[in-house]
Design a protein around this nucleic acid. Structure first.
Lengths: 248, 248
DNA sequence: TTCCACCGGAAACGTCGATACCGTATCACT
DNA sequence: AGTGATACGGTATCGACGTTTCCGGTGGAA
């Protein structure tokens, strides 16, 4: 599957100038061309022929480098994920472990929102578990969970915690990407994150008083049944109820 | 797009036996053949030619019936979702609304776990928002959320609640399907569900009795704490609430 | 120098989604 | 009832896809 050792590698140092471009650099060039195509032209534009043309190689070269089209896709995911991580230079902060978990979750979600096509490639289909990028992300996640565990912050199993964090992040990103842009509410992300924190850690969530918001929402939902207000009054009332409901 | 009226339909009763099979039944046969192929042979096996052979029709017939391959896929999703719902004969229980929400979430997740291929088809790609089955599921969900709102149980906006429920269910199903069978922990599903319940609902209802009058009373009681409305607005609002509260 | 092993380029294979074409049978009109 | 038009269903086919095969040439080894 992966490129095994070749006889020429031992004498690669004495090759001519253009041929001195190693296998890895050619791989890199193809991956970047494919990633470019994915981002700018969409997923369906990532065909073996289009990638070959964009990278200036021939179609069979892709199979010699990656074995398969899925191999190319996996390499793309790994590359894109690594690039994102090094751009964010994620550091194992010696902060509060729970705060670290929050930051890690945010990071995972931010990656999905910043690279929708790549994220969909990695996480949309349930069959692609063995992807290298997938494992890399899980590895980082497991490290933070371990920190939580040693601090005694974990409410559940380490493994269950990993699944919960992964599931909430995955649902958050995919749902966010599905929504039209004018309906994307940032509260979706923060609420999911805090909900995940409450499920995974022992930290008690700050219980907020509902105030008038809950009653406003209830009245707004029950408003169509009423008959005592005129339509104009009801219209203005709905507007105020919207403001009150959003306030909480 | 849809099959318009044909001249033959008027005289269909006098046609021969085999030709009496109407357009809709042919559609149904093709959809069932495609669904069978999807379940038993995998997603890649659902090609226009394979479906045509399995259904005993010719490849162009698919385009005449569904316009597009995506049209066939959408029809499959709608059909599978409807079949699942009628098999579960989902009833609008007059139970506790929070319990209804729990049951609805479980139902959505159960559909995904029981029909992995179909679920992936419906929810994997973020671009397929306009699927008929997608909308049907959302409609059911919105009904339950509305019930929560009128009872004063909703902690967040109705729209945000819908997103939260959808996101947790989606993350739960996809994560579950990604896991190898020996690592699937049922606690993942229940924990996610209860976490969603905690994020969406209040422990205590914000209104005593549902309906416009009860909600109006609750809002009137909580109104002095609010700061989003001007005093004039609040004054008029209180008057309307008095009328609404007296109406019950 | 001769031989061998391997690499890169060109062509091609089978299949996919989708479509143009065409004979035929049905319906409207006189 | 005869005739023209119309639309349906079947055949053949198109361009593009993922993938493979084949071959000429280039390098190091004997």
């Amino acid at each position: 599957m992966a490129s095994s050792s070749h006889g020429r590698d031992g004498a690669a140092a004495v090759e001519s100038d253009t041929a001195a471009i190693g296998r890895d650099q050619l791989r890199q060039r193809v991956i970047e061309a494919a990633a470019d195509l994915l981002v700018h032209e969409g997923r369906d534009a990532v065909t073996t022929r289009a990638v070959a043309v964009a990278a200036g190689v021939q179609p069979p070269a892709i199979y010699r480098l990656f074995g398969d089209k899925d191999g190319l896709l996996d390499a793309m995911a790994e590359y894109g994920f690594a690039r994102f991580l090094e751009a964010k230079h994620v550091a194992p902060d010696p902060q509060h472990p729970v705060e670290d978990l929050r930051a890690g979750w945010d990071l995972a979600v931010e990656f999905g929102l910043a690279n929708p096509a790549l994220y969909t490639l990695m996480y949309s289909e349930p069959t692609k578990e063995t992807s290298a990028a997938f494992k890399a992300g899980m590895k980082i996640l497991m490290g933070r969970i371990r920190n939580l565990a040693v601090g005694g912050w974990l409410r559940v199993d380490e493994e269950l915690a990993a699944m919960l964090i992964h599931a909430t992040a995955r649902g958050a990103v995919l749902t966010w990407l599905t929504l039209p842009k004018d309906r994307r509410n940032p509260a979706l992300l923060t609420t999911l994150r805090e909900s995940m924190i409450a499920a995974v850690t022992n930290q008690e969530p700050a219980v907020q008083d509902s105030g008038p918001a809950g009653a406003a929402r209830a009245l707004r939902a029950a408003l169509p049944e009423q008959t005592t207000l005129s339509s104009a009054e009801q219209h203005l009332l709905t507007e105020w109820l919207d403001r009150l409901a959003a306030d909480g």
